[in-house]
Design a protein around this nucleic acid. Structure first.
Lengths: 119, 119
DNA sequence: CAGTATCCTCTTGGATACTG
DNA sequence: CAGTATCCAAGAGGATACTG
């Protein structure tokens, strides 16, 4: 009998069709994982996210947030105040990434950070 | 009491320190996931991997394989024959990605492909 | 405060030709 | 067969100045 993995492997012939690639497209890149990771803890304002990521250019943050919003991972809520206040939070779809994020983080601690201790 | 997630979030202030980012660095990019996915099924020769990924440039494949080898994910075995034969297989560390890959693939099927059916 | 606009560099990805 | 070498295009990432 055919396994689940074999079934889904038959589905793709190009990388674009690979189910894993399409997930990486959504959560991949240098800054999206830390952004999701932060928002998994609590909703945050634009400026606070920025402050939490020293080194990330403003443009990169705003583009990342826009893409995550387009992909339905996060929700942007703007309050019509002066000065403006914008809060980003995870959608249900974004929340559903929690287990994956935990696994990715765990794998890193077990397979990457331990090497650094040795080095 | 402090959760596991809170503990590891304290550890990073830059994206480079984010544990999830360092995992994405290893398995991210356009072609690495499909390569790992293929090798999770069985060891494969260079040419066969190439044939399985139409559209991927040779240079990209060889660079990806080299990086995966450097990161300890795959093992390169060259047989001293003419014509040469080189087989790539997963290391234990690569094999340990199986659960993550399954989750990523599953998430895609549940949250991305279903949208395409509607569209 | 929450972004845009501009200009820049570096990496990734890609097509094609060539080699041990 | 299993790659390299070369040249090129596109996008990600980054620093800084500006705006509603």
């Amino acid at each position: 009998m055919e396994t689940e993995q074999e079934k889904s492997q038959k589905k793709f012939h190009h990388a674009d069709d690979c189910p894993i690639t399409s997930t990486i497209d959504v959560i991949g890149g240098k800054w999206k994982p830390p952004i999701i990771w932060l928002l998994l803890k609590e909703p945050m304002r634009f400026g606070d996210i920025h402050k939490s990521m020293p080194g990330m250019a403003l443009k990169v943050l705003s583009r990342s947030l826009k893409e995550l919003e387009t992909d339905g991972i996060i929700i942007r809520t703007a309050f019509p105040e002066i000065p403006p206040r914008v809060v980003y939070s995870l959608s249900d779809k974004g929340e559903s990434l929690r287990e994956i994020m935990k696994l990715l983080s765990q794998w890193s601690r077990e397979h990457i950070m331990k090497l650094e201790e040795v080095a």
